[in-house]
């Protein structure tokens, strides 16, 4: 009875109530920020005394914001490409390979996911100080690649394990060389895994704060670093405008993923 929604009786309303409140708790901050970004109050008073677009104007007028966004995108794009490529090759080794310690290696590849990022950030900061990679795009890319790669490997190994290897065998018997079979049959069949590897890698880099704070220099900042630095001074509504733009990007990405899922199904 407890797992039948219609036969829960009064408990149904309790569960629905908690779920409704939790949903409100989860969505309201996002809604408020979007609303306040159009509010005229410098102190983010709610309800706003009037409506304005000036915070957006200030965001787009400041080259440092745009530059930071551009840097974020540039780094995230490089990280995505490298993460998917290295992840794909490693996943083939992990799923179709046979060697001692394979399972251990797989667990090792996922450890950057469980380790507190601050430890990695401090350690890499020390290392990069020595070899002069702090404040460089290369340093950013390497740092983000370390935390993005586990997501890539996880998505692609999952997809590869769900792919029936007999299909690749069939392609080879049809006359395709082993490499050709991989490129023309296996890769398209695991494209959903490659796609989610790409999305996760991109978002990991695009949203990453902690590593970025340590890697950044006054001349090279990503968007999260810029927001972080601004936040430490005051809560200016320009951040609300920037945040709203980020939320729009997030929603667009979610819709894209949902659409592609639907496309894959039909």
């Amino acid at each position: 009875m407890l797992l039948n929604f219609d036969r829960l009786g009064g408990w149904k309303w309790i569960l629905l109530g908690i779920t409704g409140l939790t949903s409100a708790f989860l969505i309201l901050p996002i809604v408020f920020i979007a609303a306040l970004s159009f509010g005229s109050s410098q102190w983010l008073i709610f309800p706003p005394p009037g409506w304005t677009l000036k915070w957006y104007a200030m965001f787009f007028a400041d080259p440092r914001w745009l530059e930071a966004a551009g840097t974020s995108f540039y780094i995230a794009a490089i990280v995505t490409v490298l993460s998917v490529l290295i992840g794909l090759v490693a996943s083939f080794g992990l799923v179709h390979g046979r060697f001692i310690g394979k399972e251990g290696l797989r667990a090792l590849f996922l450890t950057p996911m469980i380790l507190p990022v601050v430890v990695l950030a401090v350690a890499l900061y020390a290392f990069f100080l020595r070899i002069g990679l702090n404040g460089t795009v290369t340093g950013f890319v390497i740092a983000h690649l370390v935390v993005a790669l586990p997501f890539s490997i996880l998505s692609i190994t999952n997809a590869l394990e769900g792919f029936d290897k007999s299909i690749e065998d069939a392609a080879v018997l049809c006359g395709a060389s082993p490499l050709e079979a991989k490129l023309r049959i296996t890769l398209p069949s695991i494209s959903h895994g490659l796609f989610s590897a790409a999305v996760f890698s991109f978002l990991t880099s695009w949203d990453e704060v902690v590593l970025a704070i340590f890697m950044a220099s006054p001349t090279l900042q990503t968007l999260p670093v810029k927001i972080w630095a601004t936040l430490r001074q005051d809560l200016t509504p320009v951040i609300a405008a920037a945040s709203t733009l980020l939320i729009v990007v997030t929603i667009a990405l979610m819709l894209l993923v949902a659409l592609l899922r639907k496309g894959l199904k039909s």
């Binding site: 090759v89 083939f92 080794g93 390979g97 090792l108 290392f127 065998d169 080879v172 082993p178 991989k182």
Partner: peptide, 24 residues
């Protein structure tokens, strides 16, 4: 059937992890 995929394929990822994660 499709050449034994082996340890070598995981080397790039492993190198990245050792040099920029484990050692630091």
């Amino acid at each position: 059937l499709v050449r034994p995929m082996n340890f070598a394929l995981t080397v790039p990822a492993l190198l990245l992890l050792v040099v920029f994660f484990i050692l630091p």
